[in-house]
């Protein structure tokens, strides 16, 4: 073999770069348990949700987007839930009513999958409410 010095160093660098994900996962200091984040068991659990879990997992953002346009641009505020009851199309008022813990519900998955929705730039999460039903001190948290 010729120019072995350069070529072997080059190949080692190549292998190291390609296997970064593996070594990161195996040796990273802040190694986490492998597996899905556990989602909060809802206090008001039930089958009241507007859509099924299978639909919601991948498509909830589409639904919220749709709701947003319905409400803001078309003034179309209500829909019917699976049990035939009237549901207001509202993230803060409807979804977060059941899924009241943003950290344990939204953030866990979003953080795991590194998704940073900008909903919370404006909308107020129930976790921002403390002590009183109506209003709270909002602590500036990383909204992204």
């Amino acid at each position: 073999m010729f120019d072995s010095k350069y070529i072997i160093i080059g190949l080692i660098i190549f292998v190291l770069i390609v296997t970064i994900p593996i070594s990161y996962n195996l040796f990273a200091l802040n190694k986490c348990e492998v597996g899905v984040p556990e989602l909060e068991i809802l206090p008001k659990a039930g089958d009241k949700c507007v859509k099924s879990r299978e639909y919601m997992r991948p498509f909830h953002m589409d639904l919220l987007n749709q709701w947003r346009d319905d409400v803001v641009r078309r003034g179309d505020r209500f829909t019917t839930g699976p049990d035939g009851k009237l549901i207001e199309k509202s993230l803060s008022n409807t979804c977060m009513d059941c899924h009241s813990n943003k950290e344990n519900f939204c953030d866990r998955c979003h953080n795991y999958a590194s998704v940073s929705p900008y909903c919370w730039d404006c909308h107020i999460a129930p976790t921002e409410i403390r002590d009183t039903d109506l209003a709270i001190h909002v602590e500036r948290e990383e909204d992204n």
Binding site: N25, L26, V34, P37, R57, P58, C109, Y112, A113
Partner: peptide
């Protein structure tokens, strides 16, 4: 399902 996807890929790569 992104969570499932990540579970699989992280599993593979660890």
């Amino acid at each position: 399902d992104l969570i499932g996807v990540k579970e699989l890929t992280v599993g593979l790569l660890s």
